[in-house]
Design a binder for these strands. Structure first.
Lengths: 138, 138
DNA sequence: GTGTTTGCAAAGTGTTTGCAATTTA
DNA sequence: TAAATTGCAAACACTTTGCAAACAC
């Protein structure tokens, strides 16, 4: 029995999710190597490349389940693709419009002042800072 | 000859766009009343409500043309819908996740410090701050 | 066993495209 | 008249859904 697999199984149980074969596989890919930003499509491809059999629908289901359980966070950065971020703490992003690359910016680095009081009855959920960059054309 | 229409015609010409009937109509709706945030679908509905005959495809074409000409700016805020902002100056946004409402925050109000140097060879295009709020459930 | 999850294929959204007809300069 | 624009319907890319079979507890 693989140790990483066992650990993932526990992590899913702790989050109240049934540790199915597919969720364990996807979890290992997502959380196995530091912070990641993935689209459903990309995760599906990675799973396939790793020899795991997981349908695209299940990848979507799983990512939604992980999001609901707080293991992962949805990012809105590109209008035609949902990204999921395995870093669930507060932080910001560099987004390279040329190639779609995303890079974390630790929350402590950026100081934001002067955010006005939200409209009557609204409460601030999150403050997202996206630094859009373009790499020079080669 | 409507004065507003004539003005819009000139504005389009100045931007290097042919002033077609459809572009003038859409332009008047977009720029006629202060800063606006619209989706293609919403603009199409508004045009229809105003009695203008414009196909949805043309609304998309026009918004793309306006974006290219710098009359309008694309906003990435919601993963399944593109918004266009008639305010092309630097500024930020409140976004109400409950009802999709968008509200401008003047750039001068918010001070951002500590943005790290972008990765090698990349240049900062824009810094977007999105303050996500939720109105209390009624 | 009972309720959950999977996976397929079909349906759904929002957006783009091909192309003939129309319009603009 | 030449080049750009329109509008329809079809094509697209991404995501969700319906439902029967497989699985977890």
């Amino acid at each position: 029995m693989n140790a990483a697999e066992e650990k993932m199984r526990k992590r899913l149980e702790a989050a109240g999710l049934r540790p199915t074969r597919q969720r364990i596989s996807l979890g290992e890919i997502l959380f196995g190597r530091g912070d990641r930003h993935v689209s459903a499509e990309a995760l599906h491809a990675e799973a396939a490349a790793a020899g795991e059999t997981v349908s695209l629908a299940t990848v979507y289901n799983t990512l939604r389940a992980f999001t609901g359980a707080g293991l992962v966070r949805e990012l809105t950065i590109d209008a035609n693709r949902v990204y999921f971020d395995t870093n669930i703490g507060a932080h910001h992003h560099f987004f390279d419009e040329r190639n779609g690359a995303l890079m974390d910016i630790p929350a402590e680095l950026i100081k934001i002042d002067g955010v006005p009081t939200p409209p009557e009855g609204a409460e601030i959920e999150a403050i997202d800072v996206i630094v859009r960059v373009k790499t020079a054309t080669s």
